[in-house]
Amino acid sequence: MWNYEKRLQYPLKIKNPNAKLAQCIISQFGGPDGELSASMRYLSQRYTMPYPEVANLLTDIGTEELAHFELIGAIVYQLTKNLSMEEIEKSGFAPYYIDHTLALWPQAAGGIPFNACEFQSKGDIIADLTEDMAAEQKARTTYDNILRLVKDDPDVYEPIKFLRAREIVHFQRFGEALRITQDRLNSKNFYQFNPGFDRCKK
């Protein structure tokens, strides 16, 4: 179960709305390497993780990703707050506005809706942890791309920089989880059996 704390993980107070930027940053809300994908990936994979350290890590990182999902939502919300009709037309925000007004809806920067096919839950610890490491790197790249676009606004730059740094830490943690896993498998053949499916001899 979960408990909610009514605060953002990183302080946020955006002074200047920017609908153009919001349309790019929304990719980390519902895009292929976004925070919704991240949290659903880890929180789905954890049930079949054979080792408690790894299942707990997926739970704790998956939980932090939910806080990132909230923070990205807050960034997009503040960037699009109180937009005038003129700003909506000029910034290219009109197509989004038609379907969602100023509400948050999980989609990629290119308008593609959120889709569970953007992540995997394979039931094999090596496959899943390798996917998780790649996911953290892809999210880091996305944040790098966003950072190049937001240089001029420290109100947006700083929280994005924070989120980018978290991807690097999570990549490290998943790497450690993979090492813990390999230490417990047959050192001559990691793939000899899948500890999430094949039964160990008692």
Binding site: N3, A74, Q78
Partner: peptide, 28 residues
């Protein structure tokens, strides 16, 4: 007022429901 329900105290009204959401406070 509480940041989490488990911290809520005896009070005349339920301030959890009345305090603003954390994303409020940006662009005016």
């Amino acid at each position: 007022g509480p940041l989490a329900v488990r911290y809520a105290e005896d009070e005349p009204e339920w301030s959890w429901a009345l305090t603003p959401m954390p994303w409020e406070g940006g662009c005016k």
